[in-house]
């Protein structure tokens, strides 16, 4: 494909919306990834995706917008994580339980109502080029909220990520910080799912954060690098996918993955731990 064709493509409304979607998620989602690593809730994102599915199923049954149902379920799961994330044993066990039970209940509900499971499964699939205007507005709003929350809370957050008890001793309202960040993490994941598909959420969220952690010397530097990697990976993936006429999602994962791998190699070359 030559550059004129690419420009033609970019004049199409769905392509523009897709581009806007990956641009805004290139800013906010890597910060979400940093929150996930910092709070040590890596398993929680799977649970979130499955409770989102349950929320969507309930919404379909009730005849309301499935995305609204999914987001409500995400917010509730995020809030429920607060007491769990305080336990030394962490969230993995509880999250595995929540995940399997929600998906089972979601399928039962859909079967009982005679609805095709694919109606809710759409959420798990998602497509960048199928981003609707409403999805984009929601995604932009949540990514902006994540970025603002980070800017407003970066000092207390750095302490909470360092150690909850030291944060408490320093006068940080740890529970309030946890509620804000966990609910935002949950909502942002719920909102990005219809765009990237659940399977690719990690590519825009966790991979830039892990790549940044390989190189960042402080929380601030880590967040800055994560956003830079997120934007670069998303734009590059989107451009390559369009140019080669390939599906956006998988190409995005590959570019983000390549960047992450590159940072691991760079850290090793600098003599850091492998």
């Amino acid at each position: 494909m030559n550059s004129a064709d690419l420009l033609d493509l970019l004049s199409l409304a769905p392509v523009q919306r897709g581009l806007a979607a990956i641009l805004v998620s290139g800013v906010g989602m890597p910060i979400v990834g940093v929150f996930i690593v910092g709070l040590d809730i890596l398993t929680a994102r799977f649970a979130l995706m499955h409770t989102a599915l349950l929320g969507a199923a309930i919404a379909l049954l009730a005849g309301i917008n499935p995305l609204a149902g999914a987001l409500t379920a995400c917010a509730a799961t995020g809030a429920a994580l607060v007491p769990l994330s305080r336990r030394p044993s962490g969230t993995s066990g509880a999250m595995g339980f929540v995940m399997t039970v929600s998906i089972a209940v979601a399928f039962l509900l859909l079967a009982a109502a005679g609805l095709p499971a694919s109606a809710a499964m759409e959420l798990l699939w998602g497509s960048v080029l199928a981003t609707r205007p409403a999805d984009l507005v929601l995604l932009a709003a949540l990514n902006a909220a994540v970025a603002l929350a980070y800017l407003a809370l970066r000092r207390p957050l750095a302490l909470v990520f360092f150690d909850r008890e030291v944060a408490l001793a320093s006068g940080v309202a740890v529970d309030r910080v946890l509620v804000v960040t966990l609910v935002l993490v949950a909502l942002a994941i719920g909102a990005v799912m219809p765009v990237t598909g659940a399977l690719l959420v990690d590519a825009v969220t966790l991979l830039p954060a892990l790549a940044a952690r390989n190189l960042g010397g402080s929380l601030g530097a880590t967040v800055g690098l994560a956003v830079a990697f997120g934007l670069a990976g998303n734009l590059l993936g989107f451009g390559i996918a369009l140019a080669l006429d390939q599906p956006v999602g998988p190409v995005l994962v590959l570019t983000a993955g390549t960047i992450t791998l590159g940072t691991f190699l760079l850290r090793r070359a600098r003599g850091g731990p492998a």
Partner: peptide
């Protein structure tokens, strides 16, 4: 504790 992200000694002292 050691923390999950790099946290500098002066940040800890400031806390």
């Amino acid at each position: 504790p050691l923390g999950r992200f790099p946290f500098r000694v002066d940040e800890l002292l400031a806390s």
